[in-house]
Design a protein around this nucleic acid. Structure first.
Lengths: 143, 143
DNA sequence: CCTTGATCTCAAGTGCACTTGAGAAATGAC
DNA sequence: GTCATTTCTCAAGTGCACTTGAGATCAAGG
């Protein structure tokens, strides 16, 4: 029970080996080393990395995610309370995100009606409504 | 009625002058030049740029946005049909995004219940559910 | 052993979306 | 006509999130 290799972790999470090493540099995982200097991971690291992937999809920058994870125990499984606390932060953010998208959707519905021909009235142009659409700031949703 | 300067466009959209020039390089706006070689924009360019800002918040990469805008007339206001078509694409994407977030939220609710202590059962870890959360891939939502 | 494949470190490169800087020319109020 | 402000071009730099490459070492099956 010496732990999982980086390759096994990569296979289980779907991440690239290079990405996992990169995450280590940024304090997201903290593998121990075996006699040969190779990284050995615990099962809880899979969950940390899964959390990172989920959080990234939500638009959190890595630094923020690392910040959250810094509150979890490093080498053992976090307690139920630990995860519950973090999950609630997520839950809150997701709710806000959904609300923002719904506002944007309603705004767009208005635009479809008006054809966006009126610059003064256009809700897409209107700063307040653009602000209401605040949310991600993403990268590649359409692939 | 010689058109708006880049500074005026920047003021009206909230974008940096450098960003607007950058967008021109990427085919998003097509200002004309005055005798001195300075860019002159039309009012419709404000709307094009507002569209870009909204689309970026939704996670569209610039190249895709430019692709969409390529279907609008360059130097005059687009027709109602033009905007309606584009708005519908947006509407579709927003609906999908909301659905994905709702799925993720439900998943998280499950995790709060279970405390994410079971690796096998954890929905955040479960590949299918992670896939269900597919969506953005953002940058900076928390600021 | 031997060899094949995984892993190691460290430096450099990539892609996106811009920003910054330098030096020159145009604009616009006085 | 003067002068601060704005704009111009073009090259280079920035930040994030990684990937790629080079050269060396470790691990494990036959």
């Amino acid at each position: 029970m010496s732990g999982l290799t980086i390759g096994e972790i990569a296979a289980r999470t779907g991440l690239a080996v290079s990405a996992i090493r990169f995450y280590e540099e940024h304090g997201i995982v903290h593998p121990v080393r075996n006699d040969g200097g190779h990284r050995r991971y615990g099962r809880h690291d899979i969950r940390r990395l899964s959390f990172v992937m989920a959080a990234q999809k939500l638009g959190f920058p890595l630094a923020d995610i690392a910040q959250h994870l810094a509150h979890l125990p490093v080498h053992k499984a976090p307690s139920k309370a630990d995860w519950t606390r973090i999950s609630k932060v997520f839950r809150h953010d997701i709710d806000a995100r959904i609300a923002a998208l719904e506002r944007l959707r309603d705004t767009l519905d208005g635009c479809i009606g008006c054809g966006c021909l009126s610059l003064q009235a256009c809700k897409l142009y209107n700063p307040d409504d653009v602000k209401a659409a605040e949310g991600p700031g993403p990268r590649n949703l359409v692939g």
